[in-house]
Design a protein around this nucleic acid. Structure first.
Lengths: 195, 195
DNA sequence: TCAGACATGTAATGGGTTACATGATTAG
DNA sequence: CTAATCATGTAACCCATTACATGTCTGA
């Protein structure tokens, strides 16, 4: 149950509400983890009962009340032993690559269009990451900022950027392959490429 | 529910047993989809009731009986409309990258060791993929083989290979960053790099 | 004779998504 | 006045994992 460990890790960096934690997944962790608030609130509740974390109830008259969670000693120990544990077999799910596997059941032009759309999507995500980089890590990892914003958070952001760049490269390559196929289809059976 | 669509796609390519389908996920689709037999058998059963697929019961006296599933017209239509549908927001989960996010809670040398281990893991996976490529796609996509083994299956394999290569590159980069950090730690506060 | 591939199923549990439900403050 | 942000929760359902359960054939 890695969501538990993700929450422990985030709470190690400072107190946060369930709402804050939900935002963190959305804003900076979306390329390697996802969780919605309906999953987070009940789990925080349970983790508090298990004494992995504690909370402070902030009662406010003008605003809605909130709970600030903090990591407890047991939680720290749980986090460290998870970090050191051997990795589980990875079970990635990438629905959009799964679709590509079966593009043979679409007309060639439609397949090319979908790959272009993919490439644009990856480009947009990459642009988002570049904004995050410029905001939180100006000048790369070798700035005074690295003391506040974790070097490792920067590592995972860089991984996300590389992933998008690589996806873009792959889309271009795949499209070029399909164009060759299309050219072959226009010039049928045995006729050589060069004339 | 994309497992359903994955099964429809695989059955479009020819009849298969639940066992065959389970193997296909293991052998050639593990970097973008995963499913175990305990998920596949009940789903095939349900899909048959929904008339997306049909099956032929093969009764054997010497071996265990088996069911060969085939795609039905309704299944083909379902597959095509899924392929054309706009992609859902992707929800990747990468536990091992999640761990990296919190490596700040491990000693530096341990973090470096874990990144080395990761790199070796990716190298091993890449080697597996290269074997698959040599077996099923000798000479790349421009061989007569492409008529039998789908060009798109080759595309997804290439994506897997690029992914592993990129992961290896990232591991090396991350390790080099940590070595710099280590060097700085040995030579503390304000003292310049060169002398 | 023992491991591994072939072959199919179920049950219990755990994890995740969608929808329902509420309500204040702030900026446009 | 309206949308977005802050803020917390529950319920129903769906999807996925682990473990239980069985049995044959083939090759080392």
């Amino acid at each position: 149950m890695s969501l538990k460990h993700a929450l422990l890790g985030l709470l190690s960096e400072g107190g946060a509400t369930g709402y804050d934690l939900t935002k963190m997944f959305e804003l900076s962790m979306s390329h390697y983890w996802h969780a919605g608030h309906s999953q987070i609130y009940p789990l925080l509740d349970q983790m508090e009962k298990d004494r992995l974390i504690s909370f402070e109830h902030i009662v406010q008259k003008d605003k809605r009340n909130k709970k600030i969670y903090r990591i407890a000693p047991r939680g720290r120990a749980t986090l460290i032993s998870w970090l050191k544990a051997p990795p589980l077999p990875s079970r990635y799910k990438d629905e959009s690559l799964l679709k590509v596997r079966f593009f043979q059941y679409l007309p060639l032009d439609e397949a090319i269009d979908l790959l272009h759309a993919r490439r644009r999507g990856h480009q947009a995500t990459l642009d988002e990451y570049r904004k995050l980089e410029a905001t939180y890590f100006p000048g790369g990892p070798d700035t005074p900022e690295r003391k506040r914003a974790s070097l490792y958070a920067y590592f995972t952001l860089r991984r996300g950027m590389m992933l998008e760049q690589d996806s873009i490269r792959w889309c271009r390559w795949a499209v070029s392959q399909l164009r060759k196929k299309k050219a072959r289809a226009r010039r049928p059976a045995g006729e050589p490429d060069g004339g």
